[in-house]
C-alpha cells in the first residue's frame, strides 16, 4: 500500500479529497434546504408539528445519534491506525464501524416498523412527510456508505486500497454523521 503524506494545508487537498468535499457541501445544502422547508412549514402549522413530534420517540433518535457517533469515532481511529501503519488494528476498527452502521439500520427499521404498524406513514400529515423523506434519504446514504466501507475493507485486505481512498471513504461516512446531526434535533426535538 502506498502510504504518503499529503499536505492537508493545501487548499486543493482537504482531508478526504476535494471531490469528496464538493459532494459533502452539495449534500449538506440539499439536506439544509429540506430542514429549512420543514421549519418553515412547522411555523405555518405549529400545533400540527408539535403534536406530531410528540408521536415520535426521541429515545430512538438519541440511541441512533450515539450509535452513529460511536461509528464515526471508530472510523477516525481506523484512519489514524492506517496512517501509522498498523493495518490490522485499522481493519478491526473499520469492521466495528460497519457493525455500528448496521446497528443504526436495525434501530431505524424497528422505528419505521412501529410507525407503519400504527399508520403513521408518509401520507399521515405534513410533519410525517418530512420525517419520512429526510430520514429515508439519510438511510440511503448510510446504505451507500456501508457499501463503500465494505469495498474499502476488501481493498485493504487485498492491499489495493490507497490511504487517499481510505480517507475518502471515511470522509463519506463522517458526512452521514454530519447529516444526522442536523436532522436529528429538528425532527425529534425542535417543534
Amino acid at each position: 500500500m502506498n502510504i504518503q503524506q499529503i499536505d492537508a494545508k493545501n487548499i486543493y487537498f482537504p482531508p478526504g479529497g476535494i471531490l469528496m468535499w464538493i459532494i459533502i457541501f452539495l449534500e449538506l445544502i440539499t439536506f439544509g434546504m429540506g430542514i429549512v422547508a420543514m421549519v418553515y412549514c412547522g411555523k405555518q402549522e405549529p400545533n400540527l408539528f408539535h403534536e406530531s413530534r410528540l408521536l415520535l420517540n426521541p429515545v430512538y433518535g438519541v440511541i441512533n445519534t450515539i450509535i452513529l457517533l460511536t461509528s464515526g469515532f471508530c472510523m477516525a481511529i481506523s484512519v489514524l491506525y492506517l496512517k501509522t501503519g498498523n493495518k490490522q488494528k485499522s481493519k478491526k476498527f473499520l469492521l466495528i464501524t460497519m457493525l455500528f452502521g448496521m446497528l443504526f439500520l436495525i434501530v431505524k427499521t424497528i422505528e419505521y416498523k412501529a410507525k407503519i404498524d400504527i399508520g403513521q406513514s408518509i401520507n399521515y400529515n405534513l410533519f410525517f412527510t418530512f420525517y419520512w423523506l429526510l430520514t429515508l434519504f439519510h438511510v440511503i446514504h448510510i446504505i451507500v456508505g456501508l457499501v463503500i466501507l465494505g469495498s474499502t475493507y476488501f481493498g485493504l485486505v487485498k492491499e489495493k486500497t490507497s490511504i487517499e481512498d481510505f480517507e475518502s471513504s471515511a470522509t463519506f461516512w463522517h458526512m452521514c454523521d454530519l447529516i444526522w446531526l442536523l436532522i436529528f434535533p429538528v425532527i425529534y426535538l425542535f417543534f
Binding site: 494545508k9 464515526g72 477516525a76 471515511a170
Partner: peptide, 18 residues
Amino acid sequence: FIGVSFYFMDLKKAHIFW
C-alpha cells in the same frame, strides 16, 4: 457538527478555506 468535522474528519488540519 463542529466536533465531528474538525476532529473526526481532521478538518482542523485543512486549509482555512474549508
